[in-house]
Write a protein that binds this DNA or RNA. Structure first.
Lengths: 297, 297
DNA sequence: AGCGGTAATACCTTGTCGGTATCACCAACT
DNA sequence: AGTTGGTGATACCGACAAGGTATTACCGCT
């Protein structure tokens, strides 16, 4: 049983005439007669009762006609779905991201993305930067919004640089260093520092250590919490000086803290990463949108 | 897009190997490669990503695989449904019948029918005998359980005689005629008769008139209600003598009435009728069952 | 009786599908 | 590193089925 045959049968059953149906199908009438006969033979039962001048559908034919309708409709729908999927207009996008620093960025892009690709379901997964890389590599994510990693994990992965931001010191408003301009890394010597735990992001953590090292002193880590917000809480409580990317400033509440870029600037960046091997058209669409929005401003 | 192509694609997508799939399909591998390539061209998008030694399904391919599953399943289901319908094992049976005299007969046959053909929905329509004939003729009923009609309405209709029963007089238990044996039509001369209304069944009504006429007297019709039960009520109330087919006795409650066949016997019969033009396999199945049950007893 | 229109049949042509042989490529194992 | 086995793709060929043309058989309607 082939769809072609079913289309033929449907035409005849609807027109109740072989010749008219043949015309509609742009084939010759005998070909149609044979096709229907073959179908009847295959199913082992007459579908159309033809008494020389009139064609009626038998009960079995009526059933087949009904089924054929849904079948052909579904087939067409399936083809369209496949094509939409290929164009990235349908399906799902598994998007991994790291916490707060990407949140405002994500919100903007996602809002626009949902408007342009309403049939795409976006599945968000918040993980540590390293875990995002790993999941993209394994194909468990289509796209990752994360920080660069030093390791060789990036083999075969494509990246797009989204943003660079300087590392900043976070100080209570009344802190003596809050007025120093520009603030140097060396000013942090001996100060109790509060930095995100290394397991929450090796790249960022090590970058802080590197800043201190370049300034020629070993950092004094007072606390290394797992959540960026906790860094700020420690700072507010006077436990020390936080070192975080600039974008974290958006998390800060009132004017109880100041964010001051550290010189010389230690940039940390935000990248979009994907796996060329497991390319997903939806991912491409998302990428293009990101590029477009960045170009627009 | 043809089902054959989809079956091929499904095999490859499931096996994730062209050669294994070809083996499973009992065709050569090159034919399979070409079929899939053609499908991809038709849909305008790659469905399988093959990097020389590994085959993966693309997102579009995954969508098609899912859709293909339901499509092929439905196609198979449709074929089975058609065949069952052709065998009378599925579908619906529109069955017309006349009131009480057929009810016990129907009950027995239907009980067995439902057991043997559980997927068939039986649609019952109670009408007057004439209306049943008309509906069968027009194809609005597959089968009718009714009384024979004198008219030429039976053109092209097939019938099967189910039962013959004599017309009976219904008398209150204490009636003088209740003891006469045998009871002759002529005994009804001058008696107030209660007969079903003519519009509820021309055949039956006229048969009663014919019985009187043959006995050489004009009937005195006291009442002609529309419902057989009402005839009995009249008799019980002493309004006169009812004349009904013998099977009506099943409607009578206690021993307040006696049913006595009238001599010479005026038989009325019950027939099954159907239209050869609008033959429905379910109808045939029902017919066969009826024949079988009659033969069995 | 004859005409117009129906579906079926007979026969031919062509396109498509499947098969065989072969190639190009990669991976794994000497 | 070279070899071997296994992968999918390509080229070519043959067979068969799908479609076309011509014709027939049959029916309803003038």
């Amino acid at each position: 049983m082939e769809l072609r045959t079913l289309r033929y049968f449907q035409a005849v059953a609807e027109e109740l005439s072989f010749s008219r149906a043949a015309e509609r199908l742009h084939i010759a009438q005998p070909a149609l007669s044979r096709a229907v006969r073959d179908l009847e033979e295959e199913l082992g039962t007459p579908l159309l009762a033809r008494n020389k001048h009139k064609v009626r559908v038998t009960p079995a034919g009526a059933v087949l006609l009904r089924e054929t309708g849904v079948l052909l409709g579904l087939a067409e729908e399936a083809a369209r779905k496949v094509q939409r999927t290929a164009l990235g207009q349908e399906g799902e996008l598994r998007l991994g991201y790291i916490g707060p620093p990407t949140r405002d960025f994500l919100a903007g892009v996602l809002r626009e993305f949902r408007i342009r690709y309403p049939r795409v379901t976006v599945i968000l997964e918040e993980r540590t930067p390293e875990r995002v890389w790993e999941m993209v590599l394994k194909g468990r994510l289509d796209l990752g919004l994360t920080r660069p990693v030093t390791a060789g994990e990036r083999l075969g992965l494509e990246t797009l640089l989204l943003r660079e931001e300087p590392l900043c010191a976070v100080l209570p408003s009344g802190h003596p260093l809050a007025k120093v301009e520009p603030l140097e890394w060396s000013a942090l010597r001996g100060q109790p520092l509060i930095v995100l735990a290394r397991r929450e992001g090796v790249g960022l953590h090590d970058r802080v250590l590197l800043g201190c090292q370049r300034a020629g002193f070993p950092p004094t880590l007072a606390h290394t919490p797992s959540i960026v917000g906790t860094v700020l809480t420690y700072v507010e409580s006077g436990a020390g000086i936080g070192v975080v990317p600039e974008s974290v400033a958006t998390l800060a509440g009132a004017d109880t803290m100041v964010f001051k870029p550290l010189h010389p600037v230690e940039p940390v960046s935000l990248v979009l990463v994907w796996n060329r091997e497991h390319e997903n058209p939806v991912g491409e669409a998302f990428c293009s949108l990101v590029r477009e929005l960045m170009a627009a401003g």
